[in-house]
Each structure stands twice: as C-alpha cells, then as structure tokens.
Design a protein around this nucleic acid. Structure first.
Length: 625
RNA sequence: GCCCCCGUAGCUCAGCGGAUAGAGCAGCCGCCUUCUAAGCGGUUGGUCGUAGGUUCGAUUCCUACCGGGGGCGCCA
C-alpha cells in the first residue's frame, strides 16, 4: 500500500543522498507540530547544518527546491519554517483515502505494522503479577498486572509471539504465616467474607500475634521446614491454601480481563530439582563459590564482578543452613525461561474442565506438551523497582554462565510503587503526619486497597449513568486499568480515590464513552457507497492525522514497553474525534451526499482505531454505555 | 557512604536535542427543542528545583548541589 509519510521520508532521504550526507543524517518525517506548518515536517536541515557548514534555513530552502522538483503526486506543496524545517501539504484526495483504507482494514488477526519497524523474532516470555498466594491482591499487584498485560497485548498486536507467566511463590514465609494462623490460631471466615480477604485479615493478625507471642515463631519455622521437605500434611495444607488463593487471584485479574498462559510454581522448581541443577552449573562456572570466613561464612555466594578479596557485596545464593534464597531459585527459573536449564516442568490445565484456563506447572507427569512453554529468546520480568538489585543478580548469573546474549535479553521492566495520598490515607484511617504527603501501603499492617474493593467502588461510581450492571462493570474495570497504566513506569502513583474514580477528562471512562458515541453515529447513519473527498474541515484533518498515527504510536509504545505512551496517544485520538464531533454538523442532517459518506467513513475509521487501541490497553470498546 | 527514581501551572501528570512547553482536575464565564453534555467553547494560571557545562539550539544530554521517595538482607 502506498504510504505518503514514507514517500516523503524517501524523498528527503534522496536529497540527503544527493548531498552525500545520508549516512550522518536520518530522513526523519514527523507530523507537523501545528496545522499552519502543514501536514508533515522534517527537521533534516537542522541536523544537516553541521555536515554542510551552512545555516539551517539556507539548507531548508535548498531542500525545498529539490523536493519541489521531484513533483511527488501526493504532495501539494513544500514550505520552510524557522529554525530550519521543511514542511509539506498533502493532496487530500490522495492522502485521506489511503489513511481511511488502512484504518478500515485493521484486522485483529493481522499484526499492525509500521514502516521501518522490525519486530522481534522468537518468543518473548513476560512474567507479571507474581502475587504471593497468601492474601487478596491489592492495588500494587494490580498495577503490576496491568502493566504486564498491556505490554503483552502491545507486543502481540505488533506481531510478537508472547508467553505470559505468573510466578507463584508458594514456599515462602508469607504463605507460612497464614498457614500458622489457620492451623493454630482458630480464625474463622465471616459469612460475607471472600476467602482471600479472610486470609488478608489472618495475615495481619498473625503478624501482631508474633510480636506478643514470640513462641509462635517456632511454629512458623517448623511450618517452613515442612513446606521445604514436602510430602507431609503441612505441605499439603499449604499447597491447598495456595491453590485456593490463586483461584481468587485469577478471578480478580479476570475481572480486569488479565489472563496467563502458564502458572509457574516455586514448589515445582524445588521438587523437580531445577535449583539443584542450576547450582551445579553455577559451581562449574565459578559463579557460585563457598565462603569460609567473614559475614558470609558457610554460605554459597555469587561474587561481584570486581574481584575484591573480602567480598561482602557478594549475593548469597545458599544460606548457611543449606536453603536456597529466592534469588537463587529465580536464577534457575530464568535459565528455564530461556531453555538453558536443560530441564522442563510438567504441565497440565489449571482447571481440567475449562479449556480456556491457563496451564500450570506440576511436579507430577502432566498432559500438555513441554515444548509449548519456555524456550524464549527474550524475557521481560515485570517487577517493581525496589527489586532492581536481585534482578541484576539474575542477569549477571546468566552472563557468568556464558549466556551473554540471554543476559542482554533479560529485561527487568521495573516500575515504581503505588503509595497513598494524604487524603486517601485519612480515608483508610492512618494518623496524619505533619509535612508528609505520601504514605506507604502495608499489607502486613492491613493498610491497603484491595483490587476487588477498588473495582467495586468504581462500579458504584459509574453505575448511576451506566445502562446496566454488566456495562457498569466493563466501564469500571477499564477506568481502573487506565488509571494504573497512564502513569509512566518510573513515576510513583500517589493513589487517590477521587482521582482514580473520576469519570471525566483524562480517564478510561472518557475513552470508552467516545467509542460508544462513534458507534451510536454509525447506527443512525446508513452506510453509502461514495468515495469522494470533500474540502477538509481542520477537525477532520486533525482526526485523520490521529488515525494515521496509530501504527507509529503503537509501535513506539510496544518498543518502549510503555503503556503510558499508548494511553497518551489514545486520549489524543479520542479528543480529536470529540473535536470533530462537536465542530462539524450532524452527519445525519448533511445534505451533500459526498460529505455525508465521507464523514460517516471517518467516524468508522476513528471507531476502528479507537477499538484497536482500547484492546491493546485492555479496555473494552462498548457499542453503547 | 554508595546506587536508582522523581522535582514542569494551585493539584495530578505528558513532553525520550529543535517551531509559541501541553493535558486533566480545581477556579471563573458560557453552551443540552441539533448524530450520546461521561461532552464542548472561552478564561485565569509556568524564571520547566538551583548553578554551571556541552551544542547553531537544552525542559530534554553531562557535572555539582538542594528537596522528596526507594534500594544496598543468610526476607521473599
């Protein structure tokens, strides 16, 4: 398909070629910053200033003359503007039909492609969520899952092969704590309490009991040992507990349309000897060494890269009691992800009755083909920024084992935490602290906003105007997702109920409403077979540009693993559509058949692209609200 | 002490070397017998933390400092 923006870039490249500076200057073509400048602009003359030792405006003028001489059929004219841009105006009758045809041919089964964008070959494995299976998921876990899921959707939409893992740490102290509470302290689930929020409550109470009755810590220790040993009543109890909580988590995330290909269990990593095997590899490579003295005496550690004699900064892999650390198991798991461990899990369907349920690892022989999982060429771990150090250790372990390429392709997609605003803290009953405007959540102390609870409140917030309950749930889920995805990853989200539940402005609700509005127009105005392009209203031109930009925006967001980038684009698209809607007369009333058909088609384009973008964001695209 | 992130309008945030720094919220003034007002128009509001440096050009890159958050476990 012809693509005017690419044609312009090629023409600019040709000029640079003629000047002999094509190697040093990119033929970048971007949307003009303002409509007055034109449709597309290139800053190439600015970049060429050094190489050609000329004033940018003089270069721009020379480039304009050459470009004009090429007589591109789709370009109506070239201008220059300070400080050194060359701009073009497109021939609407050629450009608009191209843009619209591309938008209307969007097909969910065909990847969205963009010029000069290469998609990763091979499988990308994304790990996200990884909520401890001992309590209800809270808003911090939800941010993780939303980021991960959106990245997965964007990678898939741009043609990537992606496997989604959710890591279940079912052998750690957190599960043990709840097991201690349930088995020894006689807590009971309230009639209207879900199992996971019951466990959240127990977790908090057990934490308090530890402080009052240190003897309980012995019970925890015994519990942990029995979990580690496996094949005993305690281990089975914990496994069942974790299973039930995982079901709750899958249900919670399912409400946000977040799903997984594989649940990978830490207990299976232990049971199947993944760590033992990884440990052998690390020792053979000198990446795990035994320490005889100093603060790490009796441990196996991974030395730092600088060979200091007393290496106190080394990372402990095996504690002096012989138990592997979390990071150690993570190394084994990372090796498995790349297919470098030489071992496989066994796999079966999580819910054998439900074919759409994710697969799960199992230590017992499973029914699913092992080659379907792992064996990735790139691994993205969605883990909050506080864990940057252990993530670096995992990457370094791969490098030390000689897997330099895989180390480079081990990506820690870090993001900052969700914290509480002063007003949200007050709502949760935290005491006010003078001069403090950010308060930390604490699941341990019960200071948290549960994901389900937030969604319930969001449903209430939209219910007044929503058509029915089902519609309200879709809107609420999308609203919450958008709120958690619109912040850039390295921005702490200072959570605020009013801000999260707002339904106007820069919100998911507005985006979904805009889609429904476009759908409403299409229902009212019959489709016509006319293809003329009338003189464009500025709002129509702006909307066409927004529609045309989708493929670039999606690829930029996918390449940058940045949900926020796609959020910003989508808001701009919705705003452009609304602007068009508000500033052009109703289509149904339009007398001119060409104008009527054109505008209806433009609405269809905007709706198609909006739906596509919403899908990548994990928001629904409702026909009506 | 070392490392990472943040500091842009009253508030919450976009802006990954270029044109007059943009949104949303809050405030003020308007617009629902016209395709969905969860919307729109207008308006108020900025020495882009501070000081240097690199560059034709810096909110953007570098250095130092100031302020805020986080990390540097034989926790996970």
């Amino acid at each position: 398909m012809s693509d005017i923006r690419s044609d312009v870039a090629a023409a600019v490249g040709r000029v640079l070629q003629e000047w002999g500076i094509a190697d040093s200057v990119d033929p970048i073509v971007e949307l003009s910053a303002r409509p007055e400048f034109g449709d597309f602009s290139t800053p190439a003359p600015l970049r060429a200033a050094r190489a050609r030792r000329m004033a940018p405006m003089a270069i721009a003028e020379e480039m304009r003359e050459r470009l004009t001489a090429y007589e591109l059929p789709s370009i109506a004219g070239w201008t220059i503007s300070s400080p050194g841009y060359v701009n073009c105006h497109v021939v609407d009758a050629r450009w608009a039909p191209d843009v619209m045809a591309a938008a209307l041919s969007l097909d969910s089964s065909v990847a969205v492609s963009a010029p000069r964008r290469m998609v990763d070959k091979g499988r990308t494995l994304v790990e996200h969520t990884a909520t401890n299976p001992n309590k209800a998921a809270h808003i911090g876990h939800l941010r993780n899952a939303c980021i991960g899921d959106c990245v997965v959707r964007m990678l898939r939409r741009t043609g990537g092969e992606v496997e989604v893992n959710n890591y279940i740490d079912d052998t750690g102290v957190q599960v043990a704590d709840v097991a201690v509470g349930l088995r020894h302290l006689g807590y009971h689930q309230e009639p209207n309490e879900t199992f996971d929020s019951f466990c959240s409550r127990v977790y908090v109470q057990v934490g308090r009991r530890y402080e009052q009755e240190p003897a309980l810590l012995d019970i925890r220790r015994q519990t942990l040992h029995q979990i580690e040993a496996g094949d005993n009543e305690v281990a089975r109890f914990v496994k069942e507990l974790a299973n039930r909580i995982v079901d709750c988590h899958l249900t919670t995330m399912g409400r946000f349309d977040i799903r997984y290909d594989l649940l990978s269990w830490e207990s299976d990593i232990i049971a199947l000897g993944f760590w033992r095997h990884a440990f052998e590899l690390l020792r053979a490579a000198g990446a795990a060494v035994h320490v005889d003295q100093g603060k790490h005496a009796g441990c196996w550690v991974m030395p730092t890269d600088d060979d200091a004699a007393d290496d106190d900064d080394a990372k402990v892999l095996v504690k002096s009691d012989g138990v592997a650390t979390y990071t150690a198991k993570d190394i084994a798991y990372q090796l498995w992800k790349f297919g470098l461990l030489g071992r496989d899990f066994n796999y079966r369907r999580w819910d054998p009755q439900d074919h759409s349920s994710p697969a799960t690892t199992t230590s017992a022989p499973g029914a699913l083909d092992a080659t379907l999982y792992g064996r990735a060429s790139r691994v993205i771990n969605v883990v909050d920024a506080r864990q940057a150090y252990p993530q670096r250790v995992v990457r370094r372990a791969l490098a030390k084992l000689g897997h330099q390429l895989e180390a480079e392709r081990s990506i820690h997609l870090g993001y900052e935490v969700v914290a509480l605003s002063a007003t949200a803290a007050a709502v949760l009953g935290l005491p006010f602290q003078d001069g403090k405007n950010i308060y930390a959540f604490s699941g341990r102390r019960g200071i948290e906003v549960r994901a389900d609870e937030l969604l319930d409140r969001a449903v209430e917030a939209v219910a007044i105007k929503a058509r029915d309950t089902a519609s309200a749930v879709l809107l609420a889920s999308g609203a919450v997702r958008y709120y958690l995805q619109k912040f850039t990853l390295n921005q702490v989200i200072v959570f605020d109920f009013d801000e999260a539940l707002r339904t106007s402005g820069d919100t998911g609700t507005y985006l979904m409403y805009t889609h429904a509005r476009a759908a409403g127009i299409l229902r009212r105005v019959p489709e016509e077979r006319m293809t003329g392009v009338p003189a464009l209203h500025p709002a129509e031109r702006a909307l066409l540009h927004a529609v045309d930009s989708y493929r670039y925006a999606l690829h930029e967001a996918a390449d940058g693993l940045s949900p926020a980038t796609l959020c910003t684009y989508t808001l701009g698209l919705a705003a452009a559509f609304t602007d068009f809607y508000e500033h052009t007369p109703p289509i149904a009333k339009e007398q001119d058949a060409v104008v009527r058909a054109f505008r209806r088609r433009l609405v269809a384009c905007a709706k198609a692209v909006l739906a596509d973008a919403l899908h990548c964001l994990g928001l629904s695209a409702p026909e009506e609200v």
